[in-house]
């Protein structure tokens, strides 16, 4: 066999451009945008050299004239998206959440939020989803940075279908939006055809002993934990705070009136993230419920494959269950 004929033979071998096939959860971003474009909305998508990581390659192949390749220039991408929005286009630009939420923070504040332009920012592979790629690629601060920017909506979908539903709904939302999304491998909890309502939490269970308020990846395991404990006769509520800002104060206050403990669970530093947002509501308006914040405890995450990290930081089902049992005994 000559060198030129050499090809991998195992179905387990793969390369970067095959991520979609390996990772169907990545289809949802493009699905949502293709649906909107087909419906006649002036959608334009852009990415900073990561179209196979966020799945926008499918949109780019379908609508090449509506896709902008920005190269590795995230700040330019965000500022240019703002310029595009002034002309009536509806830009959706995506890159790793670690870069979007930190590197381009000032462009988001100045050019997108301050200018109140309908730019949609998609920060993907958020939290510790990048595993052993390390701290440069982890985003455990992006809720904190984005939450302090006025006029910016923050959505943290729990899975691909919820992202797709939120993308579809976003054309009717006249504010800039930061989507904080995973890596497309989240177990599916939602139906992509369901309606997404900005600012409205999704209640999965009501509980008197504890109510888990989670966003993003930890929502699915939290629902599983509540089911398991319910079977044991325990009362655990679960709220998916898919819109982190503006936060659903009513849902928090109702849970706090019903439950002894509110447990926030997030793939983010417990400082500045969902736990802080819930704490603000409870401190100002809440009843006697105690608050426990669970997430990354103001540290840089270790290096490991993502599933190992989720286990280590007790963000998988077993970990969240153990945290809940620590609280309810």
């Amino acid at each position: 066999m000559t060198q030129a004929n050499l090809r991998p033979t195992s179905p387990n071998s793969w390369h970067y451009r095959e991520l979609n096939m390996k990772n169907p959860g990545l289809d949802h971003l493009s699905n949502g945008l293709i649906t909107l474009t087909e419906a006649g909305h002036p959608i334009v998508a852009g990415s900073a050299d990561l179209q196979y990581s966020n799945g926008l390659n499918r949109f780019a192949a379908r609508y090449p004239d509506r896709y902008v390749s920005f190269g590795i220039s995230e700040q330019n991408m965000v500022s240019a998206a703002a310029g595009l929005a002034t002309t009536g286009m509806m830009p959706y630009v995506a890159t790793f959440a670690s870069f979007l939420g930190l590197l381009t923070c000032e462009q988001i504040r100045m050019d997108v939020a301050y200018c109140a332009l309908p730019v949609r920012l998609i920060g993907h592979h958020t939290g510790i989803a990048m595993g052993f790629y390390g701290t440069s690629h982890h985003a455990t601060e992006d809720i904190g940075t984005m939450r302090s920017i006025a006029d910016l909506t923050i959505v943290s979908p729990a899975d691909g279908p919820q992202l797709e539903a939120a993308i579809r709904a976003s054309v009717e939302h006249d504010r800039p939006i930061y989507f904080r999304t995973g890596r497309g491998r989240e177990p599916e909890l939602y139906n992509s055809k369901a309606d997404f309502v900005f600012g409205k939490a999704v209640e999965h269970a009501q509980g008197e002993e504890v109510t888990i308020i989670a966003c993003g990846l930890p929502v699915h395991p939290s629902v599983q934990v509540a089911k398991k404990l319910a079977a044991e006769g325990r009362s655990v509520g679960v709220i998916d705070m898919a819109t982190v800002k503006p936060i659903d104060r009513d849902a928090i206050l109702a849970a706090a009136a019903r439950s002894k403990v509110i447990l926030t669970v997030e793939e983010h530093n417990i400082l500045g993230g969902l736990g802080s947002a819930v704490a603000e509501v409870l401190a100002e308006e809440g009843g006697p419920a105690r608050l426990v914040r669970h997430g990354i405890r103001d540290e840089y995450a270790l290096i490991a494959p993502p599933t190992h990290l989720y286990a280590h930081y007790r963000l998988d089902q077993a970990g969240i269950e153990s945290v809940v049992r620590d609280i309810i005994g």
């Binding site: 334009v44 330019n76 965000v78 500022s79 240019a80 703002a82």
Partner: peptide, 12 residues
Amino acid sequence: SNGLGMALGGRM
């Protein structure tokens, strides 16, 4: 960069 986006939008 803002101007770049406007020029792109104009062309589109």
